[in-house]
Structure formats: C-alpha cells, structure tokens
Amino acid sequence: MAKLSTELVNLLGNYGHIGFTFVAAIFVGLGGGIYLDEKVFDGRTSPWFTFIGLAFGIAAGFKSLFDILRTPAAKSDDKDTEG
C-alpha cells in the first residue's frame, strides 16, 4: 500500500500537469495574437494575427508535451519501472 501510493503520487507529480501546461500554452499564443491584432495594429490586421498566434500556441502546447516526456524526473521514473 505504501509503495503503491508513493508510485501514484510520483506519477501524478510527473504527468498530472500535462493538461494545464497544454491549455496554458494555447491560451498564451491566442492571447498574444489577439493583443497584436487589437492593440498593436488597431484591428487593421484582424483576424490574421489571432490565427497565427493560435497556431503557434497549439504548436507550443505540443512542444511542451514533448518537454514533459524528456524531463529527467520522467526518465528516472521509466528506469525504475523497467529494471
């Protein structure tokens, strides 16, 4: 039981934040795009920077997913389960 709960806490710690990280990246990208459209270019370029920002945000979200898989904590966790 103790070992199981330690493993559970470890897994939750390493991978439980995937959802938030992904969503945060998309929102930052989208927010940046909207800011460029509305504030910097006064709506003249609307909606193009919004779309570009959204695309970059989604790309950043996937990039942060790969980053989570490459963190040292996740790697050492893999080694433990294999051998």
Partner: peptide, 13 residues
Amino acid sequence: PIELISNIARLLS
C-alpha cells in the same frame, strides 16, 4: 515564437 510562448505559458500554468 514557439519556445517563447511555451516559456510564458510556464508562468500561467
């Protein structure tokens, strides 16, 4: 831009 966005997203998430 992707790296910049994912870095600022750290602050938010």
